[in-house]
Write a protein that binds this DNA or RNA. Structure first.
Length: 808
DNA sequence: AGCCCCGGTGAAGTC
DNA sequence: CACCGGGGCT
């Protein structure tokens, strides 16, 4: 049998066997990067290194799983299982579960998602009496996120003259204070946001040399995939961990760096060379994935960027088909043309649905393709977009789970303390919230000791709150004894959510009910899968800490085999879009996703759609060269996903933001040498003549200008000279809204004396419904309901204490 | 206490 | 156009 090293070309082989010391591998698209990474790990293990001593950081959990499976085939399942492999976020979340108590976090800390974070920021704005129009929560969160990814603490932020000057000049001087409060609040709630997982890991490694040493010794070999997309915070973690043994290898491709918006920094590659002067660098330049046409076109595209490493990607594969350009008149037609082109290729090439991907710049573009595919009965799966875990009903159940695990999780508490309705109103919740903020404690602590706070909450509501506390406590006590499925099921039923949804027989209600079932099924699957060794390790630590807790009387009886709810929650919060694919992997479906999500994947046939100026490249990227270059790298990533054939499409008109927008083909199409391209036939264009294509573009932009010519008033609304918008504001609609405004503003106070004395048969007038007759009176004042037959508006049931009536 | 309707506002990519 | 928050309605 061949040894696996024999499968490699000389460059790959050299990169694979150079296991000691710092190594940088610059790997072009499709050059066998994953194979090298996999074999490197296998090779290190064959040399006798224990899998427990190897840390591999990948971009998705799915990539980690697949790589582990490949390694298992070489070194055996048992050994491979012991590897520490996963995304930065999931690996360091696990380490923080073990070590976080040193930083004052509970080991069952909650991970706040972006919604939670924004909600916390909104509260802080309220508390500080700041305008959320000026301090937009998403903007504030971005700013905090940036700071954390640069390892700037709240204190440092406030004391830093540069950030202060920036915030002063943007009229947001309180950002530092918000950041400080945000950290305090999250800490108090025992919660970390995504950036904290990296930031707090840095704090841990900085402030606890013994911990640093422990992990330096543990992770003797460190491998980082997609290194071009790491940010400063990640870079420092790696640098610290590798400092002792220096067996650090990074694999990346500067041409595929597409995440600068979340702090990724190409500079990390350059810094790497500075940090490790005795670094060995390898270049993988032979592409095994794609045809000569695709590789050639991709090289052509990327050559337009100034910032790049010298690298020549080449292939010995066939020439393959030219890259087809599809022109559509509208976004919907684009969907149809892509779907039928897909069906045609599928038939001609006898391809599977799963051989195809449709890649777009923004999630909002997916709709037209979904519709067209559905019409042709082509099964598809869509990655990203609104996640299953974001659905209201799912989040409700998960909030119960989160609060059960971490009672201090204020965000979850607020969500469910009155859902399903149990008579704890907004006023009460506000009081609790204010008290918690004042005393710097969690809302849970307040409601557990309600008597001590004198909040003016009456006995009735107090007892309802006490019931709620008892209920959650009963779940928390069960955590160690029930598996995740049993407990989640008990929570879903016991909370009343299942009942509430079950009684709702509307289509939406049924679908919500099904989503809860799906969630529970997912938890069941999770419970049935055995733990990995790292998960066992973390489990031991958490269970040991539970045993220390004297309030937990039965901790020593805990069944260690049990996969518990807290483990499930950890797992799902850090899934990437690609990881979240719930479908059976074997199902034969077309993949729809953003180009960002497609990174690292490959498909035989790829459609890159929406190639229009201001969409791709995005208009937000047009202000700076570096942004435009990132956009171009994104296009490079898209094209290089294709093995056999790539197709590009654009529409000349599309709906966006409720307007019709006329579009011009993307400059990126121009940037490809036309010898690689196959233009639409009806245009009768000589594909070997670039100037003809320029003309073709001008025709479209001219056409657009002509068509919107009558609407010149609106022209100045558009952001670029070549795109114009048409605004549709039907006058009729305006009138209606004016009318209703008029009606509500002229309202008069309700005369309750009249309402109280109404009798059956009385004739009344209502300012909205007109004239009518009382046909029925039910209930005792002030809950009296009247059924009134209006002359023109039909029969209405009105609550008399509210209804604005006059007696005639 | 919730539901509904209105008007205002925003609109890229993600762990 | 889609989403959200506010305020009116019952």
């Amino acid at each position: 049998m061949n040894h696996f090293l024999d499968e490699l070309n000389p460059a790959q082989r050299a990169a694979t066997i150079s296991t000691e010391g710092p190594v940088m591998i610059i790997a072009g698209a499709g050059s066998g990067k994953t194979r090298v990474l996999t074999y490197r790990i296998a090779h290190i293990m064959e040399k006798g290194v224990d899998a427990f001593n190897i840390l591999a950081l990948t971009f998705t959990n799915k990539a980690a799983r697949e790589m582990k499976a490949r390694i298992a085939k070489i070194v055996g399942d048992k050994e491979a299982k012991n590897l520490w492999m996963g995304t930065f976020h999931s690996i360091f979340a696990k380490i923080l579960r073990i070590e976080g108590e040193k930083l004052g976090y509970p080991n069952n800390f909650t991970i706040y998602d972006t919604d939670d974070s924004k909600s916390v920021i909104k509260e802080i704005l309220k508390q500080l009496n700041l305008d959320d129009k000026i301090y937009k929560p998403s903007m504030v969160l971005n700013r905090i996120s940036d700071a954390k990814n640069k390892l700037i603490s709240a204190g440092a932020y406030i004391n830093n003259p540069i950030t202060q000057a920036e915030d002063q000049s943007s009229r947001k001087p309180m950002l530092g204070q918000i950041y400080l409060n945000y950290q305090k609040r999250n800490f108090k709630a025992g919660a970390m946001d995504f950036d904290d997982l990296l930031y707090q890991t840095n704090v841990l490694l900085r402030d606890f040399p013994d911990v640093l040493l422990k992990y330096q010794n543990k992770f003797r070999y460190i491998l980082v995939d997609e290194y071009q997309d790491t940010n400063f915070s990640q870079y420092v973690i790696i640098k610290q961990l590798a400092a002792r043994f220096q067996n650090i290898s990074v694999v990346g491709d500067d041409a595929q760096s597409i995440y600068s918006f979340r702090g990724a920094n190409i500079q990390n590659i350059l810094n790497f060379e500075k940090d490790y002067p005795d670094l060995k660098t390898f270049k993988l330049e032979q592409n095994y994935r794609s045809t000569k046409t695709i590789v050639g076109a991709a090289n052509h595209i990327i050559a337009n960027n100034k910032d790049q490493f010298k690298k020549v990607v080449f292939t010995d594969n066939d020439d393959g088909n030219k890259i087809k350009i599809i022109k559509a008149s509208t976004d919907n037609e684009e969907g149809q043309k892509i779907a039928s082109s897909l069906a045609e290729i599928r038939m001609q090439e006898r391809a599977m649905n799963s051989d195809f991907a449709i890649l777009y710049r923004t999630n909002a573009q997916s709709r037209a393709f979904e519709e067209a595919l559905r019409r042709l009965n082509i099964p598809y799966r869509i990655f990203g977009g609104v996640s299953f875990y974001q659905r209201k009903e799912v989040k409700d159940v998960l909030s119960y789970c989160r609060l059960t695990i971490n009672n201090n999780d204020d965000e979850s508490l607020k969500r469910i303390i009155n859902y399903p309705a149990r008579g704890i109103g907004q006023t009460t919740i506000d009081k609790i919230n204010v008290a918690a903020a004042e005393h710097d404690i969690s809302m849970w602590t307040v409601i557990c000791n309600l008597k001590d706070f004198n909040l003016g909450i009456n006995a009735g509501i107090s007892s309802k709150i006490a019931d709620f506390v008892t209920q959650i406590k009963s779940y928390s006590l069960l955590l160690p004894y029930k598996d995740a499925f049993e407990l989640a099921n008990q929570i879903a039923v016991g909370s009343g959510i299942v009942k509430e949804l079950y009684t709702d027989k509307t289509p939406e209600g049924v679908s919500r009910y099904e989503n809860i079932q799906e969630l529970l099924n997912g938890i069941k699957d999770f419970v049935e899968q055995p733990r990995t060794p790292q998960e066992d390790e973390i489990n031991d630590v958490i269970k040991a800490s539970l045993a220390k807790d004297e309030t937990n009387l039965f901790a020593e009886e805990t069944d260690n085999k049990l996969k518990t709810l807290d483990e499930f929650m950890q797992e799902i919060t850090l899934l990437t879009d690609v990881d979240k694919d719930k479908d059976d992997e074997n199902k034969d479906k077309v993949s729809l996703m953003t180009i960002h999500a497609s990174k690292g994947l490959e498909f035989k046939y790829v459609f890159v759609v929406g190639l229009e100026e201001n969409l791709f490249p995005s208009q937000l990227s047009l202000n700076s060269r570096t942004d435009l270059e990132e956009e171009r790298r994104l296009f490079y990533v898209a094209i290089t996903r294709a093995e056999r054939q790539a197709t590009l499409s654009f529409a000349t008109m599309r709906y966006r933001y409720g307007n019709i927008l006329y579009c011009e083909p993307s400059r990126f199409i121009d940037e490809i040498d036309s010898k690689y391209l196959d233009f639409p036939e009806e245009q009768n264009i000589n594909p070997f003549n670039d100037t003809t294509f320029d003309k073709f573009r001008e025709d479209y932009s001219d056409g657009a200008k002509k068509e919107i010519g009558f609407n010149s008033k609106n022209k100045n609304l558009s952001t670029s000279s070549s795109n114009s918008t048409l605004n549709f504001n039907p006058p009729a609609k305006k009138l209606i809204s004016l009318n209703s405004k008029f009606m509500t503003s002229s309202s008069t106070p309700v005369d309750l004396t009249i309402n109280k004395s109404l009798q059956q048969g009385d004739i009344v007038t209502h300012e909205k419904f007109g004239k009518g007759q009382v046909v029925l009176l039910e209930g005792v004042w002030p809950e009296t309901k009247a059924t009134i037959q209006f002359e023109n508006q039909g029969t209405k049931n009105l609550l008399l204490k509210f209804a604005r009536l006059n007696k005639l």
